[in-house]
């Protein structure tokens, strides 16, 4: 393999209109374009999307629900709060909001506690993926608890008064 890029255009393509200074740029661009393509092939071999993840993404289609309202994350102590000095492992506080419904959630190693506001009964599922989850009931005050702390991506699906609200997916 010789370094004779300047003698022939890579790929044998003639340059139509190199323009002023254009020749070098174009040759350079083709050279780097080839290098980029080599890198792309290397990535496909050495660091491809894991097959398991691809499968999970395909299955995630089941999560699309045009009728559910999305409660957006409006507060996350990981991002928005100043860490408390001395608190080794403080619970993570999250707030989600969808119009008039607010959900406050506290996630700790013990599990998950939350409250629907304004206070109301609800069935709450802690989702970890497209599969169904065992629901827990929120009491009259809208309070609910779950013993299993979420691991990995999670979302809450709330059914309350004929409405379905799903919180934005987050990493635990």
């Amino acid at each position: 393999m010789k370094d004779d890029v300047n003698d022939t255009a890579p790929g044998g393509e003639p340059f139509d209109d190199p323009g002023p200074d254009g020749f070098d740029d174009t040759a350079d661009d083709l050279g780097t374009g080839l290098l980029e393509e080599s890198l792309r092939q290397a990535a496909a071999i050495l660091d491809p999307v894991p097959a398991e993840l691809r499968r999970l993404a395909v299955e995630a289609f089941a999560l699309h629900d045009l009728d559910a309202r999305i409660a957006e994350l409006t507060f996350d102590s990981v991002v928005d709060a100043i860490p408390v000095r001395g608190a080794a492992d403080p619970p993570r506080m999250l707030t989600f909001r969808a119009d008039e419904v607010t959900v406050d959630v506290e996630v700790s190693a013990q599990g998950l506690m939350g409250q629907v506001l304004p206070p109301q009964r609800a069935r709450v599922e802690v989702l970890s993926g497209p599969q169904r989850a065992v629901p827990v009931d929120a009491d009259d005050m809208g309070r609910f608890t779950s013993d299993t702390p979420p691991a990995g991506p999670f979302a809450l699906r709330l059914r309350t008064g004929g409405r379905v609200v799903v919180t934005e997916w987050l990493r635990a």
Binding site: V49, P50, L53, L56, A57, A60, F61, A62, L63, H64, D65, L66, I70, G129, G152, P153, A155, V166, E168, W169, L170, R171
Partner: peptide, 20 residues
């Protein structure tokens, strides 16, 4: 581990926001 979780979170959220 983080890479896998972020990847999943992104696709779950994409599915969730699909119609929007």
């Amino acid at each position: 581990a983080d890479a896998h979780e972020v990847y999943q979170t992104v696709w779950f959220r994409f599915a969730q926001h699909l119609g929007r």
